[in-house]
């Protein structure tokens, strides 16, 4: 139980660190140099407020189970066992990053922990989880796959295609819909017909359940049932977890998008904060004390601070890395580059 709290705290601290840095960031220096914490490149979509979903779902997964994530993927990575050091190094575009600095926040793939990838295209990871589930089934590995996606993804055709395929072939996949009420900067209800996202699974014969996404134990219990069904060959399940993102679509968005959410709305979700709530439960049931929780928060904050320090101190990728990794068997140039010959006439 304390491990669930610790993982949620780790995600929160990681995201809060990103938020602090982004708010004071200057962007990379001249020539792309990254020499201070304020030089974090790019932009990040934070999982602040949604921590209970990733942690609750991954709590019932085995290390070799598979997860396909989204643009808002830091929480999924950490919950699945990702290490904050190579994560932060990737956010700083470092050679020590999970993707050698070639991917960034939205392109992190960690096969050894079953992470199929964060993904910059809304809904694009859903069929990857379905395909991984197909492998699990065809290779008889007893593994399951999870597709995390948001309410915005529910209006992508590939979401429906993927549910059809998963149900048709009774694949061991769990669709985890993180309904944070917004598609980028527009309330999803203004963009979405019908009154139930979970209900979209039903015509495919996929059982669907709606849970409080800010209650880690409720999420875990729903995921446990879905994973059990998947493991014994009963096919996919959809879990709609209702939640809210404190940080908005991406950090620093006010400059581009202005204010689009009422303070009252944000405040009403703050009182349902998943970490505060679960902490209270742990104290009430005697699992730990307030100071025990405080210690965990402090340890995780320190862990993240060390990750930031080491990321800032780390080396950037060598420029020779620019053209490697396009193909497995190619060094730069096999995708034939050509040495220009200077014209002599």
């Amino acid at each position: 139980m304390l491990e669930l709290y610790r993982l949620m705290a780790r995600i929160r601290e990681f995201e809060e660190a990103c938020r602090r840095i982004q708010r004071t960031r200057t962007g990379p220096g001249p020539d792309g140099s990254v020499s201070s914490a304020g030089h974090m490149p790019g932009f990040v979509h934070l999982y602040l407020g949604e921590e209970a979903i990733a942690v609750g779902v991954c709590a019932v997964l085995r290390p070799d189970d598979l997860v396909a994530s989204t643009h808002r993927g830091h929480g999924h990575l950490i919950a699945k066992g990702g290490d904050v050091e190579p994560m932060m190094a990737e956010l700083y575009g470092r050679a020590a990053g999970y993707s050698k600095g070639k991917g960034g926040s939205m392109h992190i793939f960690v096969p050894e922990i079953g992470m199929l990838g964060t993904n910059g295209i809304v809904a694009a990871g859903i069929p990857h989880a379905v395909g991984a589930a197909l492998s699990c089934k065809l290779l008889g590995l007893g593994r399951v796959a999870v597709a995390f996606f948001g309410d915005g993804a529910c209006n992508q055709g590939v979401f429906f295609e993927s549910m059809n395929l998963a149900a048709l072939w009774a694949l061991p996949v769990i669709f985890v819909l993180e309904n944070n009420l917004y598609s980028e900067w527009t309330e999803s209800q203004r963009l979405t017909a019908g009154n139930s996202l979970a209900g979209r699974a039903l015509p495919f014969g996929i059982p669907a359940v709606v849970v409080d996404g800010n209650d880690v134990l409720a999420v875990r219990d729903a995921a446990w049932e879905a994973v059990a069904r998947a493991r014994c060959g009963q096919g996919p399940t959809l879990i709609e977890a209702r939640t809210y993102y404190y940080g908005g679509h991406f950090e620093g968005e006010e400059f581009f998008a202005g204010h689009y959410r009422s303070e009252a709305d944000v405040a009403s979700w703050r009182v349902r904060d998943p970490i505060v709530r679960f902490g209270r439960t742990l104290v009430d049931t005697g699992e730990t004390s307030d100071s025990g929780l405080e210690l965990i928060r402090r340890e995780e904050a320190e862990r993240v601070a060390r990750a930031v320090d080491s990321a800032v101190a780390a080396d950037p990728p060598a420029i020779s890395e620019l053209t490697t990794d396009v193909f497995a068997d190619t060094e730069p140039g096999t995708h034939p580059t050509v040495t220009p010959v200077t014209a002599t006439s």
Binding site: L66, A68, P111, L116, A124, I126, P127, H128, A129, V130, G131, A132, A133, L134, S135, C136, L138, L139, L141, A145, G157, V158, E161, S162, N164, L165, L168
Partner: peptide, 28 residues
């Protein structure tokens, strides 16, 4: 039919599924 599978006319999902399958041990 286990190894030779007709798919629905769902190019996005099917290409996406090939990616997930290839990342986890199949050669589709």
């Amino acid at each position: 039919q286990e190894r030779v599978r007709n798919t629905p006319i769902s190019e996005q999902a099917v290409v996406g599924a090939m990616i997930g399958a290839a990342a986890t041990g199949l050669r589709p």
